[in-house]
Amino acid sequence: MVSAQALLDGSTLDDSTVIARSLEQPELFAVVFDRHADEMFRYAARRLGAEPAEDVVAEVFLVAFRHRGRYDRTRPDARPWLYGITTNVASQHRRAERRRIDVMARIGADRPGSFDDRSVERVTAQQLQPRLARALSTLSSRERDLLLLVAWTDLSYEDVAEALRIPTGTVRSRLHRVRVKLRRTLGAIDPFTLETQHG
């Protein structure tokens, strides 16, 4: 066998090429890990917290590796594919995510407007604002998957569609429903909350 470096000699190779080559040279898949593991970790950690995210990412790349034969080689960027797998794997941690969201939502509810700035920062740095967490908790898991891919990653609607394996039109229509739901929750809460609002 040829050593990997003989096969892979530049970062200019797109993911698709690397993945195709990894069918013959499985170890090359490490390149995909090296390129995207951090990003997948960040996404998983934002949703689930750091600890579950560690398990998720490890699992994501094993799953991706096992399914690399099905990778759509017309896609040079593997991130939509990986985000899709991350979403799937993360869904096995739904209960943990739910708990996390509830906790984040409660923090605000328990101490409305009474915390000092420093604790706010500490609380919110790695967490979602309580009002957003509450809004998030009103969504179905499928809607949450969609919303967070759109909001927390730089994927285009087309990429999100690919990640979730749904048509782009479906992304738009589902997103519309999500907006309606959010408008209801966020709109209702807003005027009465003292929480700071970003953006």
């Binding site: 490490a30 950690a45 590796f65 740095a125 790695q126 957003l132 998030l136 907006r179 408008r183 953006g199």
Partner: peptide, 29 residues
């Protein structure tokens, strides 16, 4: 609209612990 606050309010991500990263990579390999 309604989605922007989520983008803006995106939680900060903790760093990927080096040991965990290495372990995941080892498993893959």
């Amino acid at each position: 609209d309604e989605i922007q606050p989520f983008a803006d309010g995106r939680p900060a991500a903790p760093p990927y612990p080096a040991e965990a990263r290495e372990a995941a990579r080892d498993r893959l390999l």
